[in-house]
Computed example of a mutant assay.
Amino acid sequence: MTDDELVLAIRTHVTGRGLPGPASAEDVTAFERVVGHPMPDLLRRTYLEVANGGFGPWRVVSLTETDDWFSDCADITMAYHAFGGPDGDALPSGLVPLMDRGCAMWTLIDFRTPDGQMWDWDPNLCCIRHAPAPLGQSLAQWLTDWLRGQAHEGPYPHRVPADSACHNP
């Protein structure tokens, strides 16, 4: 699917769900300044043309605070800062928490990649050091799986398994 087709399919899929209206371009720019990387184009278009959060298998976090919270965080900036940790290194730079799956598990998106490579965050598998792992999927692939009813809510089958001999805290 092209990005145009995906945006239209997402809009159609979420019609009637009572999601917040689209975010503003200023909100996108403000968050890009926080992260220090540009938002992948498809994610930008989805926030700007579909809804300010709530789309996706477990409902993507809103870009800005709305009356709807799709995680324990009011918005994506709060989620991003929550992952900063005391040393600011809980996540590699440019990885952004996108979707809260519960039990401390998140789906992340890599702002360093133009196609928005997807990552998993699951500290329950081993330790904080091994919690983030790439999924080998772009945002477009991830959204297409969701639209086709093939989304994995976790654990992700594409995830590289954590080392069972890990003794990190």
Rank of each mutant, 00 (worst) to 15 (best):
R33S: 11
D68V: 11
L143T: 07
S138Q: 02
W142L: 11
T29P: 06
V50A: 03
C103V: 14
A82V: 13
P132W: 12
L147S: 05
G102K: 09
L91S: 00
S138M: 04
E153I: 13
F70V: 07
A74N: 14
P38Y: 10
N124F: 06
L108F: 02
G85H: 08
I128T: 08
V160I: 14
P86Y: 15
F111G: 01
A82M: 07
T77C: 04
G149E: 10
Q137N: 11
L108V: 01
Q141I: 07
P155T: 15
M105I: 15
P40C: 08
F70R: 06
D72Y: 13
C126K: 01
L91G: 01
P92L: 09
V14G: 00
P134V: 09
M39Y: 06
A23H: 05
I76M: 15
T46R: 03
G116D: 10
P86Q: 14
S138C: 08
D27P: 03
G36H: 10
P86F: 15
P157K: 04
H37A: 11
M118T: 14
D89S: 11
T46P: 09
M78L: 07
T113M: 05
L98I: 09
G88M: 02
G136V: 00
G116R: 08
G21H: 03
D122C: 10
A82W: 07
P155G: 08
T107I: 15
G36L: 11
L125R: 15
G88P: 00
L91A: 01
E32M: 06
E65H: 09
G56P: 05
G56M: 00
D145E: 15
L42G: 06
G116N: 08
